[in-house]
């Protein structure tokens, strides 16, 4: 319970900090907007005749880039940001363990990301339902895609968080950390985009393989990042 309490304390502290941190708000707003506006504009201008084409595509998978990119940026700031502010050392002098600290920070990146991703997705569907030409919405919104969105959003987000945190434990500049973290998550974005554009066939086997791979990475992520989180290096800046 004490472990959970400390992780929870870190979680709420992070959320309080997010509210007043311009970089975080920027990351949470800009990426979703990029992945929301372009497809909306495209779909609103598509005529009803294109619905049969949409029925065989998986355009919505494209939006899985949001849970891959947003948490990577948040997580990349988690350790290096604290180090830069000088707040990491006082935290490390308390009984909090690496795992508790990282878990709290991971949850603080995960929950807003999932909320924003589902929210943006819901908004997208609502706009298409309300304003797209007749026949577009039913062609676009297919159960497998909705399910993929539901399942892959947290899986991708957790993976991106561990990638971001791993980068954050090794970087000494938050901006560089952010760029590297986004760069490191691009393979996942590439896979979802290639599925969305039909380059990779959207088959059950592909989804299962991708899902199992992510689940395994998510599971070992905390252990890997914990091992990379070296108090001594972070406090003394030795390399």
């Amino acid at each position: 319970m004490k472990k959970l309490r400390r992780a929870r304390a870190v979680f709420f502290k992070e959320l309080r900090d997010y509210k007043r941190n311009g970089n975080v708000i920027y990351a949470m707003v800009i990426f979703p907007l990029i992945f929301l506006i372009q497809p909306i504009v495209e779909l609103l201008t598509v005529s009803s005749g294109a619905s049969h084409v949409l029925r065989h595509e998986h355009s919505l998978v494209y939006m899985l880039a949001i849970p891959a990119l947003v948490p990577a940026v948040l997580a990349s700031y988690a350790v290096v940001g604290e180090r830069l502010q000088g707040t990491l050392e006082p935290v490390l002098t308390t009984p909090v363990t690496r795992e508790e600290l990282l878990l709290g920070k991971a949850l603080a990146a995960l929950i807003p990301t999932v909320v924003v991703s589902y929210g943006v997705f819901g908004l997208f569907i609502a706009v298409v339902e309300l304003f797209a030409h007749p026949g577009i919405a039913p062609a676009l919104v297919q159960w497998p895609d909705l399910l993929a969105q539901l399942i892959f959003t947290p899986l991708l987000a957790v993976w991106a968080i561990w990638v971001g945190m791993a980068v954050s434990t090794r970087c000494s500049d938050p901006r560089t950390a952010g760029q590297l973290a986004v760069f490191a998550t691009l393979p996942a974005v590439a896979v979802t985009s290639l599925i969305a554009f039909g380059v990779i066939p959207a088959k059950l086997q592909v989804a299962l393989g991708f899902g199992i791979g992510l689940a395994v990475l998510d599971r070992v992520g905390l252990r890997v990042v914990s091992a990379m989180f070296d108090r001594e290096r972070l406090v003394s800046s030795t390399r």
Binding site: D17, K19, Q85, G86, L88
Partner: peptide
């Protein structure tokens, strides 16, 4: 520590 290291926000 010598630097207070507070969460300024």
């Amino acid at each position: 520590p010598e630097a207070p290291g507070l969460y300024l926000r």
